[in-house]
Design a protein around this nucleic acid. Structure first.
Length: 547
RNA sequence: GCGCCCGUAGCUCAAAGGAUAGAGCGUUCGACUUCGGAUCGAAAGGUUGGGGGUUCGAGUCCCUCCGGGCGCACCA
C-alpha cells in the first residue's frame, strides 16, 4: 500500500466515510505539505459540524502514520501531511534501482495493443503522423510501466483511391516508383488532377478498381515497387523516432475480412442509393455504389485481425480528432457485429498541428512534412551539438530534434490543436524537450565526475527534505496518473517541474563539496538522473548522456 | 442547421471542484574565478470570451450568448 492509499484509508476511518470519497491531493505549494485533504470542509455540513471542529476531530484520531512526519491544520480546514525523512530516503533508494523506478502493477497480466502513426504508403509522412507517433509511443510505454504486455501496431492504407492517384501520377509523369520523393510528387499530381478533371477522375477510378482485382500487370508492378519503397522509407523514420512496431496491418488485408463481416449482417448494413450503409449516430457508407469497401468496412476487419494475432484486453487506436465521428459510428456498428470485441476497443484522439504563421495547405505547397520538420530541427541543433561533449554530434542533434518535437506535442493536453511555432521550437530553451535532456545530461555529468574523484553516493535517512527530494517522491504517482488517463502530458508537466527543481537546487548547491554531505547529495543527483531517464523514456524522448 | 472539441498573461501552454490562477518565450534588470550558462534569480504582465446558476469554495460543473477548430453519404 502506498502512503497515499494509506492516508486515504485512515482519513476515511476517522471521518467515518468511505475511502473512495476522500479527496487527497498534492498542494499547489510545497509549504502546504506533500499531501493535503479538504474532507473536513466537504463533509462538515453533512455531519452538522463546523469545518474546523471536524478537522480537529479527524486529526486527533489520526495519531502516527508511517512515512508521515507532521500533520497540520490550515486554511478553512485543510489537513496537510508532511512526508517523513525516511519516506523521502526510501524513494531515493528505490529510484537508484533504476529499472523498477516508476513502475506499478495495475495492469499486470493484461494484454494491450496500441495502434498509432498509420501513415499511408504512396503518400508523405506528414505532421499528423508525427503527432500520432509521439502520443502512441508514449501511451504504449506508459502502459508498459503498469505491468501490461503491450504490442505496438501500425495500420497502413495500401489500397484505395489515394494509391490509384499516386499510380496514375507515376504513369503520367514517368516517375520512378523506387524513389520516395517521386512517389510524393506522383500523389500530389494525381490528387489535384482528380479534382480538376473529370476524365482523369474516371481513369483513376478505373485504376483503383483494377488494383483491387490485381488484374493489370503493369499497374501491379508499379504498385508493388511503390509500396515497398514507401514502407522501407517509413522504417527509416521510425528508427529516428524510436518506434519499433510489433504488428503491421494493411488495408489490403483488412478489406476482405471486413467485407465478410458486412456481408454476413444484411440486417445491420442496409442498401441506400446503391451503396451499403449503416445508420448509427449518423449514417456512414460501408460499401460504395461501385461495390468497393470503404475505410469503415476495413476497420471492422482490422479489429478481427488484431484480436486474432494478439487476444487483447484493450485495443487503443490513436488518431487525429477529425476521425472521432467516424470512430463513433464504427464502434456503434461493431457492438452489433463483433459484440465480444467492441467493449475492448478504445479510440483516443488528438488535435491538429497548425502553424503559427497561418494554415498549412498542400495545394499551395505551404506544408511541413514530418520529415522536413525533423530535418530542420536537426539542422538547428547541429551547431551546438558540434561544440558539445558528445562523441557523435550528428546523433545528438537528431536526438535533440526528436526531443524538441515530441515534447511540444506531449506537453499539451489532447483535444486541442497544437500551434506549432517554428521559432519557438528551434530555440531549444526553457519549456522544451532539450531542457529536460540537458538536466539529465547534467546529472549524468556530475555522476561521472564523482566516479573520477572516487566519491561514493549514499542516502542519508536523516537528510533535510528539499523541494527536489519531495518532488522525486511523486514520480511513480505522476506515471500512474498519466497511464491511467492515457495522457502523456500529465507526465510531461511533472517532469518539467521536476527538472526545474533540480536546476534550481543545482544552482544553489555544490554537490561534490568535499564534505561528508556530498554522499547524500550525490545519491539525490543519481535519483534525479534515473527519474529523468525513465521519465524521458516514457515520453519516447531520447536521453543523451552528454550534450 | 446538427454533433464533438476549444476559448486562461503580448505569444505558446499548465492548473483531481480547493489555499495568493502557474510555467516558458518575449520585455527589463541581475548571477557563480565553482560539479556542464541549452542554467539560475528578480521585475512587469490576468475581471480565466460575456452573462446567469449550483457549491462552504468555480478557470474547472449546469444554462445561455459570442468567437474559433473539426466532423456530418459513397475519401482515408
Amino acid at each position: 500500500m502506498t502512503i497515499a492509499e494509506d492516508l486515504k484509508k485512515r482519513i476515511a476511518d476517522a471521518a467515518r466515510i468511505s475511502s473512495a470519497e476522500v479527496t487527497l491531493e498534492h498542494p499547489a505549494e510545497l509549504k502546504n505539505g506533500d499531501y493535503s485533504s479538504p474532507v473536513a470542509i466537504q463533509y462538515a455540513k453533512k455531519l452538522g459540524k463546523k469545518p474546523r471542529d471536524l478537522t480537529e476531530e479527524i486529526v486527533a484520531k489520526l495519531r502516527t502514520i508511517e512515512g508521515v512526519d507532521k500533520i497540520e491544520v490550515a486554511g478553512a480546514g485543510f489537513i496537510n501531511f508532511y512526508l517523513a525523512r525516511s519516506a523521502l530516503a526510501k524513494a531515493m533508494e528505490e529510484a537508484r534501482l533504476e529499472t523498477t523506478w516508476g513502475r506499478n502493477d495495475t495492469n499486470k497480466d493484461k494484454k494491450m495493443m496500441v495502434e498509432y502513426t498509420d501513415p499511408n504508403p504512396f503518400k508523405e509522412f506528414h505532421i499528423g503522423h508525427l503527432m500520432s507517433n509521439a502520443i502512441g509511443e508514449s501511451v504504449a510505454r506508459l502502459t508498459e510501466f503498469t505491468g501490461a504486455e503491450v504490442k505496438r501496431a501500425n495500420y497502413q492504407g495500401d489500397v484505395g483511391p489515394h494509391v490509384a492517384k499516386a499510380i496514375w501520377g507515376l504513369k503520367k509523369l514517368g516517375l520512378n516508383a523506387a524513389d520516395p520523393t517521386d512517389l510524393g510528387k506522383a500523389y500530389v499530381a494525381g490528387a489535384s488532377a482528380y479534382e480538376d478533371d473529370a476524365n482523369v477522375r474516371a481513369e483513376i477510378d478505373a485504376i483503383n478498381a483494377k488494383l483491387y482485382e490485381r488484374s493489370d500487370d503493369e499497374l501491379n508492378k508499379l504498385y508493388d515497387v511503390g509500396r515497398k519503397t514507401s514502407l522501407a522509407h517509413f522504417e527509416e523514420i521510425y528508427k529516428v523516432l524510436g518506434t519499433k512496431f510489433d504488428h503491421y496491418f494493411f488495408e489490403s488485408e483488412a478489406a476482405p475480412k471486413g467485407m465478410e463481416i458486412v456481408g454476413a449482417h444484411p440486417d445491420v448494413f442496409v442498401k441506400s442509393e446503391g451503396a451499403i450503409v449503416y445508420h448509427g449516430p449518423h449514417t456512414r457508407v460501408f460499401f460504395t455504389a461501385k461495390g468497393l469497401p470503404t475505410y469503415e468496412t476495413k476497420e471492422l476487419g482490422l479489429a478481427l485481425m488484431k484480436a486474432k494475432e494478439f487476444p487483447f484486453d484493450l485495443s487503443i487506436t490513436v488518431t487525429a480528432h477529425e476521425q472521432s465521428g467516424y470512430f463513433e459510428v464504427v464502434l456503434d456498428a461493431m457492438k452489433k457485429v463483433l459484440p465480444e470485441l467492441a467493449p475492448k476497443v478504445k479510440h483516443i484522439s488528438h488535435g491538429m498541428m497548425r502553424l503559427a504563421s497561418g494554415k498549412m495547405s498542400s495545394r499551395t505547397g505551404d506544408v511541413i512534412t514530418g520529415e522536413s520538420l525533423l530535418r530542420d530541427l536537426t539542422e538547428a541543433a547541429r551547431g551546438r551539438a558540434k561544440e558539445s561533449r558528445a562523441e557523435d554530434p550528428e546523433k545528438l542533434s537528431q536526438d535533440i530534434a526528436v526531443g524538441a518535437i515530441k515534447y511540444q506535442i506531449l506537453k499539451q493536453a489532447s483535444g486541442r490543436d497544437i500551434i506549432f511555432d517554428r521559432e519557438r521550437a528551434l530555440s531549444l530553451e526553457g519549456d522544451s524537450g532539450p531542457y529536460l535532456q540537458y538536466a539529465h545530461a547534467r546529472a549524468h555529468g556530475v555522476m561521472e565526475k564523482a566516479r573520477e574523484q572516487n566519491v561514493a553516493a549514499a542516502v542519508d535517512k536523516n537528510a533535510e527534505p528539499t523541494g527536489l527530494s519531495r518532488l522525486l517522491h511523486r514520480f511513480p504517482e505522476a506515471v500512474a496518473k498519466a497511464a491511467q488517463e492515457l495522457e502523456p502530458h500529465l507526465l510531461t508537466n511533472y517532469l518539467l517541474e521536476f527538472a526545474s527543481a533540480f536546476n534550481r537546487w543545482y544552482a544553489n548547491e555544490q554537490i561534490l563539496d568535499g564534505t561528508p554531505a556530498a554522499a547524500h547529495k550525490l545519491a539525490l543527483t543519481d535519483a534525479v538522473r534515473v527519474t529523468l531517464k525513465n521519465g524521458l523514456w516514457l515520453l519516447g524522448i531520447p536521453a543523451p548522456e552528454k550534450m
